[in-house]
């Protein structure tokens, strides 16, 4: 198993990964609560970025509506906890299933009816918007007034119901991120990974080589949606509140894809580096503004916009591909060079 995992990765890359993992594991020993919340945010975006990347980076299907799956997962788990006291781990399969089903419906309609390119991207937005308006009127889960979970109890960590302090949430999201990284790494080298990349590069050629492109695109959407729903469950229990206007909004979908785009679409490390840069820089900006005593709502988003603009203009492949070449790690990358 370990052999398969590390196969083909340069030693330098492995050492770097190990050091990084150790640093992450040890972080709560030195970090204060504020730093921990920033790290949680970074890991959260690494995880969701990784999940989105399966669809766009691997299979070439641009989703601009991934907030849909975060919201569905979050609402499913939160509603079950709120109404019936069912814990997040028990409701997780249902949350994942709901989001995966939504992804399957979207994918089925789009791929069966040949909705591609711009139209596909807009269809994903439409689905998310549909859910946003729908949940606004879905009173069982609070409607537009929102759904609130009993606030976390800081004195005791209860992993089973995900009630506890930031350190516990930190380790949960760290485990999720590591698992997503390993899963994506294995996927890229699997049959599905090769089929996805072939579809991304040239769908007609992929079909001519015997790949059932409809089926593999469905796999990508369903898997990506399901994984994203897990992040939604985490989100619901970490923030303890859900508002349709916020969770399903298009700006959430955009926020979620900034990391992988800035880091490098289709790479394994890109979503993580991107999440680090964008969240780290945004938080530093906030600190600076705080220190200067200025409070300008919107400044952080303008900064996001400028980062995105700079990356798409000057680094069209994202930061990781050129960076990995500079570090001599490029064989470890992920653009499918299985050698």
């Amino acid at each position: 198993m370990i052999g398969r995992l590390v196969e083909g990765t340069p030693r330098r890359g492995l050492v770097l990964l190990a050091v990084l993992l150790m640093a992450f594991l040890a972080a709560p020993l030195v970090a204060n609560d504020y730093m921990l919340t920033v790290l949680i945010l970074i890991l959260y975006f690494s995880y969701t970025g990784q999940a989105w990347n399966i669809m766009m980076g691997f299979a070439g299907q641009l989703s601009l509506g991934h907030a849909l799956y975060v919201g569905l997962g979050g609402y499913a788990a939160a509603a079950l906890y709120f109404h019936f006291g069912i814990g997040p781990w028990l409701s997780l399969p249902l949350a994942v299933a709901v989001a995966a089903a939504a992804g399957a419906i979207l994918g089925f309609l789009a791929f069966r009816f040949g909705v591609a390119g711009v139209y596909f991207a807009i269809l994903t937005i439409a689905f998310a918007e549909f859910a946003r308006v729908g949940f606004d009127h879905f009173t069982w889960v609070g409607g537009s007034a929102g759904l609130f979970l009993p606030v976390a109890n800081y004195t005791r960590n209860d992993l089973w119901t995900l009630r506890g302090n930031p350190t516990m949430f930190y380790y949960v999201i760290l485990a999720m991120t590591v698992a997503a990284f390993v899963l994506c790494h294995l996927l890229l080298r699997s049959r599905a990974g090769y089929c996805w990349q072939a579809i991304r590069e040239d769908e007609e050629a992929a079909r001519a080589l015997g790949i059932n492109t409809f089926r593999y695109k469905m796999y990508a959407v369903v898997l990506s949606a399901g994984m994203t729903a897990f992040a939604g469950v985490f989100f619901a229990f970490y923030y303890n509140n859900l508002f349709p206007e916020q969770v399903f909004s298009i700006s959430r979908s955009i926020e979620l894809i900034l990391g992988p785009i800035i880091g490098g679409v289709g790479t394994l490390v890109g979503p993580i580096i991107g999440a680090f840069l964008i969240t780290g820089l945004a938080e530093s900006l906030r600190e600076v503004m705080h220190a200067l005593g200025v409070d300008v709502p919107g400044l952080k988003q303008v900064f996001y916009g400028l980062c995105l603009l700079a990356v798409v203009m000057f680094l069209p492949d994202g930061i990781w591909p050129p960076l990995s070449r500079a570090l001599g790690l490029d064989r470890d990358s992920s653009r499918g060079q299985g050698t």
Binding site: L62, L64, V118, A121, S251, I254, I261, V296, P297, G298, L299, Q301, V302, Y304, G305, L306, L308, L309, V312, M313
Partner: peptide, 17 residues
């Protein structure tokens, strides 16, 4: 898309500021 989404983000929040 990404280029124009970046422009959109900047415009919305520029107006907000």
């Amino acid at each position: 898309f990404m280029l124009l989404i970046a422009v959109a983000i900047i415009l919305v929040n520029g107006l907000l500021i």
